[in-house]
Design a protein around this nucleic acid. Structure first.
Length: 660
RNA sequence: CGCGGGUUGGAGCAGUGGUCAACUCGUCGGGCUCAUAACCCGAAGAUCGGAGGUUCGAGUCCUUCACCCGCAACCA
């Protein structure tokens, strides 16, 4: 029986437009999946979308579209994107699939019956600002241990997963199974930051929104993301359904691949859920780095997203796939810039690979009338060296791929391509062609080159989806035995006699400077559109808010409850161990200046604050922030990107002046 | 001292005690003319963040300082 290989991407959240960062994980998984398939594994490659939750509900409401219709549209685009990028997934799961929803309910019920999910009734102390529940023993002086504020006996009942129960087992798992969480640097991060300090039971239901899977035995609750989303990896295989053949066959997963931001959930919560279900754990959770754009985190609001559709249309799918697979050091953050993208496409794909194929096919046409010659004489040293490299390529790539070092695998392949280019210089076919004796030798040379190209093309198939087929076509090779890994064991496939077809260039060279300007133009256009869209979204959202949530109108007497005064900052210092906090002493004309902590350290230096007049809410309940009691609040304006600006009186006023 | 990572030629990076500090891009020079102004060869360019220490010997180990970046915390 074939060995199985089950690989997954995370399920993506369809709250907006898809961009190049979305493609990264998926392309890597695709390359791994294709590689394993070619190796003869029985591969199951899963991807999909996580479609529940409050945010989706809101976004859809803002767009004034029924939730499901909204999602269907976005998911449709995602599927188009995967088609464009030749993603060979075996299943696309949506958490709104009936099978998934039913299975989630069964899983939830099972965990509940087992006692690993319990209802927290009236014994949870809830800190509203922290959105956190605490047990009585966790409270400090009856207050939130996090922020020191009052907590309330919550009226919102919730279901909890007993994550704490699995703490020891999770700790042991990560400490002992070094293969489980990769790269290793994440292991300590998880252990020190999350596991050892103690795992708290996890709230796994909500009543605050209803776009989700209903808790079967308590309809006003909706299953929250942890369970709903994570279990997709098993429900997609039919776990807890009538037909669990796939589950029996493929579980446990061989690799869950994801971005580093969600490692925590996959390495802690997910195994705990599986333990609770008495199921085997995935063999590996691999967190890769992020793809940065011009060294900036990809963000939609900045409008700096490269549209993959445009990139593929202009430069080809393979160029994009190549970039993703080759340029980003695995496990680390990578950078995407248009310039590097274009340069890499030129140097590797056009110059090395494309040009090699071009020059070789040209010579076969010119010297042998288009038929690949059969070698007649023995090998010389150069031949041996070339052949050796070509023959050693497959094992080398396997080794890299087993470690998931995709860039390294591609590097090996391109080493061979470069070696072939060098081989042409060393053998100088154009000189050989001039004499009869040389022509005999020339047969060997050109055959060796064609065969090397064939080998490289076979190896490239998991990574590039268009180019290898084009190369085979140029060499007159039909898809079949000679395009499979099995044909790589020895150099010398029977391709002589094949008619080559020079045809079109594989990759047209690009004038980088010129093209960069074009791309800047496109980006500029996108930015404008993004801004426009944001504005109209905002408007829609605002309108919606008015209709539904309606900000409560207040009378003047309510406003007067808030006491605002002008104050002057007399002292200001950074709060230790806090990035965002400044602690100021503010004179409010009360004799003693007040101590007020504000989250503006990112925008103001302490010395810059001293002497400034600010508006202070003076009758706010004091609150402890990082151990300092803050006796009020400094008013600030903030935009949607979070930029802050303190509000000052337009002219200097006496400290303590009232503001109304 | 919350946890972790980083600081190596113009850029990006490899290198966990011992030959000339590797590779890619860029720069400069040369070769070739089959090919997509491409390909091949060669050269220049690094006191390996600072200081101290261990050692016969350190980019590599230890101490310390500085700066950068994640994660966590924090934003009344």
């Amino acid at each position: 029986m074939k060995k199985k290989f089950y690989i997954t991407t995370p399920i993506y959240y369809p709250s907006g437009k898809w961009h190049i960062g979305t493609c990264y994980t998926t392309i890597i998984c695709d390359a791994l999946a294709r590689f394993k398939r070619m190796q003869g594994y029985d591969v199951f490659y899963l991807t999909g979308t996580d479609e529940h939750g409050q945010k989706i509900q809101k976004v859809a409401a803002a767009a004034n579209v029924p939730v499901k219709a909204y999602i269907d549209n976005v998911v449709g685009e995602l599927k188009k994107l995967w088609e464009l990028l030749d993603i060979s997934y075996d299943k696309f799961i949506r958490t709104t699939d009936e099978q998934h929803e039913k299975a989630v309910q069964k899983i939830f019920t099972k965990l509940y019956e087992k006692g690993d999910i319990y209802k927290s009734e009236y014994e949870g102390w809830y800190c509203t600002p922290c959105e956190a529940f605490w047990t009585k023993t966790q409270l400090v002086d009856g207050k939130c241990p996090d922020c020191g504020r009052e907590v309330e006996l919550t009226k919102e009942e919730s279901y909890f997963f007993r994550l704490s129960k699995y703490q020891k087992k999770i700790e042991k798992l990560i400490e002992e199974d070094k293969e489980f969480l990769q790269p290793v640097t994440r292991q300590n991060e998880m252990l020190n930051n999350f596991i050892r300090p103690g795992l708290q039971d996890l709230c796994v239901s909500r009543t605050s929104f209803d776009w989700g899977v209903k808790v079967p035995f308590d309809q006003k609750h909706v299953v929250y993301v942890w369970i709903d989303a994570l279990v997709n990896y098993i429900t997609a295989l039919g776990y807890a359904s009538d037909d669990d053949e796939l589950f029996k066959k493929y579980w446990p997963a061989d690799v869950h691949l994801m971005g580093k931001e969600i490692i925590r959930f996959h390495s802690i919560i997910w195994p705990a859920i599986l333990m609770a279900l008495d199921l085997p754990l995935p063999k590996k959770v691999y967190g890769h780095g992020w793809l940065m754009f011009n060294n900036d985190k990809m963000s939609k609001s900045k409008g700096n997203i490269v549209d993959p559709f445009i990139l593929c249309e202009r430069y080809g799918v393979d160029a994009l796939r190549y970039y993703m697979l080759k340029e980003v050091p695995f496990g680390q953050d990578g950078n995407f810039t248009n310039e590097i993208f274009l340069k890499l496409r030129n140097s590797d794909l056009a110059n090395d690979l494309g040009n090699l194929v071009s020059r070789v096919t040209a010579m076969v046409s010119q010297y042998f009338d288009g038929a690949i010659p059969k070698p007649e004489s023995g090998d010389e040293e150069v031949d041996k060296s070339l052949k050796k490299m070509a023959e050693e390529l497959y094992p080398a790539v396997v080794e890299s791929m087993d470690k998931m070092y995709v860039p390294e695998a591609l590097e090996s392949i391109f080493k061979v391509i470069q070696r072939a280019n060098k081989y042409i210089d060393e053998t100088a076919p154009w000189t050989l062609a001039k004499t009869d004796e040389g022509k005999v030798r020339l047969k060997n040379v050109l055959y060796n080159l064609c065969e090397t190209i064939r080998i490289a093309a076979v190896m490239l198939q998991p990574f590039l989806t268009q180019t290898p087929a084009k190369i085979f076509q140029k060499l007159g090779i039909a898809q079949g035995e000679l395009t499979e890994f099995g044909s790589l064991k020895k150099f010398g496939a029977k391709i002589y006699g094949n008619k080559v077809d020079k045809g079109e260039q594989l990759f047209q060279r690009i004038d980088v400077d010129k093209e960069l300007k074009v791309m800047d133009g496109i980006l500029e256009e996108q930015k404008k559109q993004a801004e426009k869209a944001q504005k109209s979204d905002k408007q829609k959202e605002d309108r919606k808010m008015e209709n539904t949530i309606t900000i409560e109108q207040i009378g003047i007497e309510e406003f007067e409850k808030v006491q605002l005064k002008v104050g002057k900052v007399v002292e200001c210092a950074k709060v230790e161990k806090a990035d965002k906090l400044l602690c100021s002493k503010i004179d409010l004309g009360e004799g003693e200046p007040r101590t007020i902590v504000s989250g503006i350290a990112k925008y103001y230096a302490p010395e810059e604050m001293v002497g400034k007049q600010v508006i202070v809410v003076t009758n706010l309940k004091p609150v402890k922030l990082r151990g300092i009691e803050s006796q009020g609040m400094v008013l600030c304006a903030s935009d949607e990107e979070g930029n802050l600006c303190v509000v000052s009186p337009e002219r200097a006023m006496k400290s303590g002046s009232e503001v109304r």
